[in-house]
Design a protein around this nucleic acid. Structure first.
Length: 642
RNA sequence: GCCGGCUUAGCUCAGUUGGUAGAGCACCUGAUUUGUAAUCAGGGGGUCGCGGGUUCGAUCCCUGCAGCCGGCACCA
């Protein structure tokens, strides 16, 4: 005789076991209709779930935080059903919920075409309109394996076979079709309305490039049509902030076929790039770093010794000289910095030694990985290597983490994702050394109060790392900063210092980058700010313009004064209407537009307008410059005006 | 690197069921001297990504390659 307690605290008695759906119906017809699933004693179940004992029950409707995931998961099933109804020999594999939607991977003899996808979506709508009831049943594992195997569903059989044999397997069916699934699912396909298939792509079985490639279909699904519409609109908006588009529109950089993955920086883009470098140079100097510069091309023997050729060789550009020596274009800066450390004798009193370099590195990245500024083959790192004793690891790492987060804050990045990555399969050094370096890095992250996600097996080949990830316009995250503890490289390259007992000791080396790659960081910034770089970064901070030719001399003189005071200013003396000039420079995202008409000339003032269209009134040149200086001081920490 | 798609003027894109191409914006010239997001008129501009094949003829069909786009795999 189950007593069921509802969220409002009331309790209902039932004479015999009841389903979630029945409870909902006994409360009200509206609730019964809205029910998507149930939560029994905190656990999500189907509406068909039978409650036999006293329990707490919540009816999950579209108001519930779990609703969206259930809808997406059920829509993935609907997709699989549609595919198998149109392509009976396609095999199902997995179909998880992801951010904003779901995907489902199929094994099929040929790739799906865009036309196939359109047909699949149409079939999905038909199946949804048929409002097929969704039913759950359970089978012992081995029977489930046999069942799927007999159906020719080899991938599914393989998945089930990897589940422990004592666990019963749940199957979900709708119409003729069923699939292995943990659930829960919506009660009937009619609940699925606001979805759309987005794209087809290849994806490796079990995510391993040695395996065969499956056909992945991505879809998005929402509770209401309005949410779907909003989502599609968000995608459109995100496309407008794509850094590749902004780079072209603002004339910042370009790429061309002859140099895949290498940036041609235009004057305006390079100005921003140099501003970033200047900023980092100041911050690093204040944090005790010395800037150095090492060769970009060094003989391969050095890279042999460091282990790069063996572990990273696939990604290296090699070149043979006319005298038959083989050189490598550096893919990393560390070996160069170790060479500098090795010159002369270092005492323990000299540590930490902090070398920083804006080092341009080249990596032969797989062609399919290239992506605008985010993933290139030639890039500039704000790289640094700090040589310390093992005892200093934690303190120095904490200093680094604090510097890093403080710098991100200057750009308005307050929520940075941090991941801890430990030993990769392809690595140098003993497990004992790895154990020590992993522990030390973990301790440092804790001491700095950083919450880390875990990224197993993703460390560098010489040491574990903390990764600092930032998001792009459409939510993809990119690793920018990194902090790596390395107990291997200094020893391999013969670096040592003299300790307090006059003994040679191998230093620990911390590798770190904050922007990571200047190119990528700038790409992220362009998307983060939608091209509206804050005044301290904007390639052009102010444009001075006249209204007629009468103000020509005044505009030229003011522009000159601004430039002399370090303002990145240009003048617009073209014979165009003011509205036209305002529009053009606004589209170019210039933070300040300074207008001089006859009135301003007479009063020796400027009419100041911000990028967002705000009228700041008339100011003297001096007043404007101090306003701009205040902006520069604040950097990106201000909330941007919309 | 793998799967799919794409590549036409500086940009965004149309077009030719195979007979060597067009729009808007941009650019140039002229007129206009203009007060906070587009003044008007005229003009120039393309070996249709590159190579090979089929054909009387290829930008269009076939094929190889490159680059780009979306995923996957790989990574700052």
């Amino acid at each position: 005789m189950p007593a069921i307690t509802l969220p409002d605290g009331s309790t209902r008695q039932y004479d015999e076991p009841v389903t979630v759906a029945a409870v909902a119906a006994s409360i009200g017809a509206g609730l019964a209709k809205a029910a998507l699933a149930g939560r029994v004693d905190g656990e999500l179940v189907d509406t068909s779930y039978v409650i036999a004992r006293d329990a707490r029950l919540e009816i999950v409707t579209d108001k519930d935080s779990a609703a969206l995931e259930i809808i997406r998961h059920s829509t993935a099933h609907l997709l699989a059903q549609a595919v198998q109804s149109l392509f009976p020999d396609a095999q199902v594999t997995i179909g998880p919920v992801i951010e904003d939607g779901f995907y489902y991977d199929f094994a099929y003899k040929r790739p799906f075409t865009p036309e196939d996808v359109a047909a699949i979506e149409t079939r999905m709508r038909e199946l949804a309109a048929a409002n097929l009831p969704v039913a759950r049943r359970e089978l012992p594992r081995d029977e489930a394996v046999a069942l799927f195997r007999s159906m020719g569903e080899h991938y599914k059989a393989e998945i089930i076979a990897s589940i422990p044999s004592n666990e019963p397997i749940s199957l979900y069916g709708q119409g003729e079709w069923f699939d292995l699934c943990r659930g829960p699912h919506v009660p009937a396909t009619g609940k699925l309305k606001s979805f759309k298939l987005m794209k087809v792509a290849g994806a490796y079985w079990r995510g391993d490039s040695r395996n065969e490639m499956l056909q992945r279909i991505y879809g998005t699904a929402w509770l209401h049509d309005k949410d779907l519409k909003d989502y599609l609109h968000r995608l459109e908006e995100a496309e407008k902030r794509d850094h590749r588009r902004i780079g072209r529109e603002l004339d910042l950089f370009h790429f061309q076929e002859e140099a895949p993955g290498a940036v041609f920086w235009h004057p305006k883009g390079w100005r921003v790039f140099q501003t970033l470098i200047g900023y980092m140079r100041d911050r690093q100097a204040a944090a005790g770093y010395d800037e150095v510069n090492a060769p970009e091309i060094m003989e391969s023997s050095l890279w042999q010794q460091s282990g790069h050729l063996e572990k990273f060789g696939e990604n290296m550009f090699l070149t043979k000289t006319p005298d038959e020596r083989t050189f490598a274009i550096k893919p990393m800066n560390c070996p160069g910095h170790v060479q500098i450390f090795k010159q002369g004798i270092r005492s323990y009193r000299d540590l930490p030694v902090r070398f920083a370099e804006f080092g341009k590195v080249h990596r032969y990245e797989p062609s399919g990985a290239l992506h605008g500024l985010m993933r290139v083959r030639a890039f500039t790192q704000d790289d640094a290597h700090v040589f310390i004793t093992e005892e200093q690891i934690t303190a120095e790492s904490v200093r680094m983490i604090e510097l890093l987060l403080s710098i991100y804050r200057d750009f308005g990045f307050d929520d940075v994702q941090v991941k801890f990555a430990d030993r990769p399969p392809l690595r140098v050094g003993s497990d004992e050394i790895w154990e020590r370096s992993e522990q030390a890095l973990k301790a440092a992250a804790e001491a700095a109060g950083v919450q880390c996600a875990y990224n197993p097996g993703e460390g560098a080949f010489y040491g574990p790392k903390l990764e600092f990830h930032l998001r792009d316009a459409i939510g993809r995250t990119w690793q920018c900063g990194t902090l790596q503890v390395d107990l291997n490289m200094p020893g391999r390259l013969g670096a040592y210092y003299i300790d307090e007992h006059s003994q040679k000791k191998t230093p620990v080396m911390l590798h770190r980058a904050i922007f990571g790659s200047l190119e990528r960081f700038l790409g992220i910034l362009l998307e983060h700010y939608a091209g509206r770089l804050p005044p301290w970064l904007a390639p052009t901070q102010a444009v001075v313009m006249g209204i007629t030719d009468r103000q020509h001399d005044y505009v030229a003189a003011v522009t000159e004064m601004l430039k002399n005071q370090g303002v990145r200013a240009t003048s617009d003396l073209r014979n165009e209407k003011l509205g036209f000039k305002i529009r053009e420079h606004t589209l170019q995202r210039v933070p300040y537009l300074l207008v001089a008409g006859d009135k301003e000339v007479a009063a020796n003032l400027l009419s100041v307008r911000t990028l967002s269209g705000k009228d700041l009134g008339t100011l003297t040149v001096t007043a404007f410059v101090s306003r701009l200086q205040a902006d520069v001081e604040r950097r990106g920490r201000t909330v941007l005006e919309e």
